[in-house]
């Protein structure tokens, strides 16, 4: 059964059950007697005083990573493709950043698989952004966000899931782009491309299996 049908059933059930519960709630509250729950009251007061655990920071990092993927993918492709066609792409593990030539080379934290070349690498708010090109397929933007710096877990930010070799992987699938996200070695990796989830799946396997 398709997920959208399951959502339809679950949503209707929540609506029906919720209406019944609201009536029950209002009947209970109508007597005007306040139930004594001193420990629960104290706990809630603690919550009302406590700062949310890095939620805003984690959201900022998530959207930074996604914006970086999309900005690189949608705004720079022509310039980078021209550089590639002119032989400007190189496969060394340390790629120069897209900023000035005097900048320190940014190390690539993963082994670039065979048949891929790194077109650019940059750091954005602690998130590494790497634009890599396959010799005969979709170009891919890879972001690597350290979890210790508050990166959101993949399942928290990706709306979809796909199955790859029996594993459920967090994903985003839209008409304009495809994304996969997974954790490895304390970092959150996000892969995005324009066209083909298969390209991301193949890269996912390479990155997952590298030692």
């Amino acid at each position: 059964m398709r997920d959208d049908e399951m959502k339809r059933i679950a949503g209707r059930w929540a609506e029906l059950e919720g209406q019944r519960l609201l009536a029950e709630r209002d009947a209970l509250n109508r007597d005007g007697v306040r139930l004594l729950l001193p420990r629960a009251d104290a706990q809630v007061q603690q919550l009302l005083r406590r700062p949310k655990p890095n939620r805003a920071q984690r959201r900022r990092r998530m959207w930074t990573a996604i914006a970086a993927c999309l900005a690189v993918y949608l705004i720079l492709p022509h310039a980078l493709l021209a550089a590639r066609d002119a032989g400007g792409a190189s496969a060394p593990q340390d790629a120069a950043s897209t900023s000035s030539a005097a900048a320190e080379p940014i190390p690539i934290p993963f082994h670039v698989p065979e048949h891929y070349a790194v077109l650019s690498a940059s750091m954005d708010n602690g998130v590494g952004v790497y634009y890599i090109a396959h010799e005969d397929g979709d170009d891919v933007v890879v972001t690597v966000a350290p979890e210790e710096e508050g990166a959101a877990a993949p399942g928290e930010v990706m709306p979809d899931e796909v199955e790859i070799d029996g594993e459920t992987v967090a994903a985003a699938v839209t008409p304009d782009y495809k994304m996969l996200s997974f954790e490895k070695g304390g970092d959150v990796y996000t892969l995005s491309c324009r066209e083909d989830m298969g390209t991301l799946a193949a890269l996912y396997r390479e990155l997952r299996n590298e030692k």
């Binding site: 929540a14 609506e15 919720g18 609201l22």
Partner: peptide, 26 residues
């Protein structure tokens, strides 16, 4: 109840209107 509201606190983004049926079911 206390534990439940800790979980509600973590999932405030899923809460619609305070008096919405979906909120009650949640």
């Amino acid at each position: 109840v206390s534990e439940a509201f800790i979980r509600v606190y973590r999932n405030m983004g899923k809460i619609e209107g305070v008096d919405s049926p979906r909120t009650a079911a949640f």
